[in-house]
């Protein structure tokens, strides 16, 4: 793959899961590398293991084996919660916590894993919301009163404000209209342009900005390649 030093690398990721009493390999020796600036698009049929792969990369898959490294540092040398602050997963189901938009955007900064990080100011939060086209969403709006598209953007923004190095998105636009989907694509493109790496599972729309295309089937990565290679 790329000549640049990999930001995130995975080698021989394997995981099994008991399905109807049999052990099924949900990941079967998956290896991949993402470099800074990459937007990798992961496709594959339902049940191919796309979500499972994202969980494994975030160290959220119990029982997964294989080697993971972030900028050359092996995962075994990093606390799981610290790893997750750098390799950030946005799950498919948007799950904001009860409260306001502001309390949700600030939530990551209340966690021990970021105890040394200064939370963004109210002005910065307002600016960030405006940037992603949520100009009409007040910071004190209750998240229960957001539309699906707004909630998805708030959840993605919450992740981006924590400044991770790698962003893993699980069908970020699955239930979004075209305008919201375009906003999400613009947000991820800017994140990559600023030196981050993105891996997104796509189902409906293809991301025109993708630089790497991966195909997962039966727990194995097949085909796929780098557009700019």
């Amino acid at each position: 793959m790329g000549v640049a030093t990999a930001l995130l690398s995975a080698r021989e990721l394997t995981a099994t899961r008991a399905v109807d009493g049999r052990d099924v390999r949900v990941l079967d020796g998956v290896s991949l590398e993402l470099a800074a600036g990459d937007i990798a698009e992961l496709r594959g049929p339902s049940g191919a293991g796309k979500t499972t792969l994202l969980l494994a990369l975030t160290r959220l898959l119990p029982g997964a084996v294989g080697e993971l490294a972030l900028a050359g540092v092996p995962a075994s040398a990093v606390e799981p919660s610290a790893w997750r602050t750098e390799v950030a997963l946005l799950p498919q189901r948007t799950a904001l916590s009860g409260g306001t938009v502001e309390s949700n955007l600030l939530l990551p900064f209340s966690l021990k894993a970021r105890s040394s990080v200064t939370p963004p100011s109210t002005e910065r939060l307002r600016e960030a919301l405006d940037d992603v086209g949520l100009t009409d969403v007040a910071l004190d709006r209750d998240v229960a009163r957001l539309s699906v598209g707004q909630a998805a953007r708030v959840a993605l923004l919450r992740m981006l404000l924590t400044a991770p190095q790698v962003l893993l998105l699980d069908e970020p636009d699955a239930s979004l209209d075209d305008a919201s989907a375009a906003a999400v694509a613009a947000m991820t493109a800017r994140f990559a342009a600023d030196g981050g790496a993105v891996l997104r599972v796509s189902h409906l729309r293809s991301d025109a900005a993708a630089t790497v295309r991966l195909h997962l089937e039966g727990g194995r990565l097949t085909g796929g390649g780098r557009d700019d290679a």
């Binding site: 975030t58 997750r84 602050t85 990551p108 966690l111 894993a113 959840a155 924590t162």
Partner: peptide, 16 residues
């Protein structure tokens, strides 16, 4: 469970 996954992905420990 959905919210817990989101929290854990944000770096929350078990207690958080």
């Amino acid at each position: 469970s959905g919210e817990i996954l989101a929290l854990t992905a944000l770096g929350a420990d078990r207690w958080e």
